[in-house]
């Protein structure tokens, strides 16, 4: 993984598997006293509906811009030392990571808050969509209820 010029943030949309140890290595800095990491994974059951796998697509250039914009907003609110926002595209198998949000800050409260903000905002703002492959062979786009702001 290659960090951008500022070396404070790592933003990636890739068909490759998310490299969790590499993301954690990136987040390590002596300036941080806490690292919060959220990993979103492919879930088998949604109520009675069984999912075999997920497939993600994106409007990639805009998605990357939005991911950077969300980090800009988070950096404005909290004193972030390191941050990474990684999303996998293409097929994601059950239990595999589809998204990783990591934040390193001096104290834990800011790390938790910024991490929560980034995943919540990513899920409504960033142009990425998931399709579920179900046990009956159907492929269904997951449609959110609210338009991005």
């Amino acid at each position: 993984m290659v960090a951008d010029e500022s070396r404070k943030r790592l933003v990636q949309l890739s068909y490759e598997r998310i490299d969790i140890p590499a993301a954690y290595r990136f987040l390590q800095t002596p300036r941080a006293g806490g690292v919060a990491v959220f990993i979103g994974t492919a879930r088998q059951w949604t109520g009675e509906r069984e999912t075999l796998s997920l497939t993600y697509e994106s409007y990639k250039p805009m998605a990357l811009k939005e991911m950077h914009r969300l980090i800009d907003a988070a950096e404005h609110k909290w004193p972030i030392q390191r941050v990474c926002l990684l999303h996998k595209l293409g097929e994601v198998r059950l239990t595999e990571a589809s998204v990783l949000v990591g934040v390193a800050t001096a104290h834990r409260a800011e790390a938790f808050a910024a991490c929560r903000f980034l995943i919540d905002q990513l899920k409504v703002q960033v142009p990425i969509w998931k399709q579920e492959r179900l046990t009956d062979g159907q492929k269904v786009w997951v449609e959110g209820n609210h338009p991005p702001r």
Binding site: H87, I119, V126, V142
Partner: peptide
């Protein structure tokens, strides 16, 4: 231009 329906990443 691109039409964006509600997103579902994550």
């Amino acid at each position: 231009v691109a039409i964006i329906t509600p997103v579902s990443g994550g």
